[in-house]
Simulated assay, not measured.
Amino acid sequence: MNTQPSEPGFTVSLDAQFPDGVPPSGVPTKGFRARRRNRHGRGMRGELMLPALPGSQTRSEKFDALVVDSAERLSELWPDGLADTEFLVEEIPDALESLMGTSERVPLGRYGAAGPEGPASVTIFRRPVESLVDTPGQLRDLVHEVIIEQVAGLLNMSPEAVDPLYRKFRGH
């Protein structure tokens, strides 16, 4: 089978090309694909999901919002103790692969005291936390509990002393 074109210089293109670069009158100047997606000049009428609706946020953005809500609540309860504390979200712990072969639990968060390398920090791991819950309400409660536990470790206090609502809404 001959795969060479029968005439030299013969090509097929779906985009309009004109020898002098100027199309004759009445010939569309847009390529086939551009005309096809925007028939009659209407195009996309708007966004499929408005930014204010809950479905427009990704799981990661929703999780970040839960962390911010919990951090704000605890910052109001402990303004002096958490004044310079950073609240961070990471996808998974650093040493997750090494933990998989052992019988240790996967950490849900960690805290670090202030030092020469930076301010105090509370980190929560999104994937391990999300894997333990079934509903958005459970996720909200678990995120808040993990942050309370990490702040309690940072402030060297019991979780119940950090937030009186600790584990009040779960069946524990």
Rank of each mutant, 00 (worst) to 15 (best):
E76W: 03
F87Q: 05
V122L: 07
G112I: 08
H144P: 10
G109T: 06
Q150C: 12
L82V: 03
P136L: 07
D94Y: 15
P119I: 09
A83F: 04
T135V: 09
G137R: 15
E130G: 03
R59N: 14
T135A: 07
S56G: 09
D94V: 14
D141Q: 15
P116D: 11
A71Y: 01
P128L: 06
L88M: 12
E86L: 15
W78L: 14
E72A: 03
L66N: 01
T58C: 08
L74C: 07
D141G: 14
S98V: 15
L77V: 09
D84F: 06
R45Q: 07
A71T: 02
T58K: 10
I124N: 00
R73T: 08
T123Q: 02
L139H: 04
S131A: 15
Q57C: 09
G43R: 14
I124W: 00
W78T: 13
S103R: 13
A113W: 13
V67H: 02
V67P: 00
P116K: 05
E149D: 07
L77C: 10
R45C: 06
D69I: 02
H144V: 04
E61A: 10
T123L: 06
V133Y: 08
A113P: 11
E97L: 15
D94C: 10
A114G: 14
Q150K: 12
E149T: 04
L66W: 00
D84Y: 04
T102D: 11
G112F: 08
Q150P: 06
G137W: 08
S121H: 09
I92C: 06
L139D: 04
G55F: 03
I147F: 00
S70G: 07
A83P: 01
I124C: 00
E61N: 08
V129S: 04
G81Q: 01
D64T: 00
R126C: 00
T123H: 01
P119Q: 13
Q150I: 08
L108M: 07
L142A: 12
A114P: 07
D64V: 00
G46D: 02
P119F: 11
S75K: 15
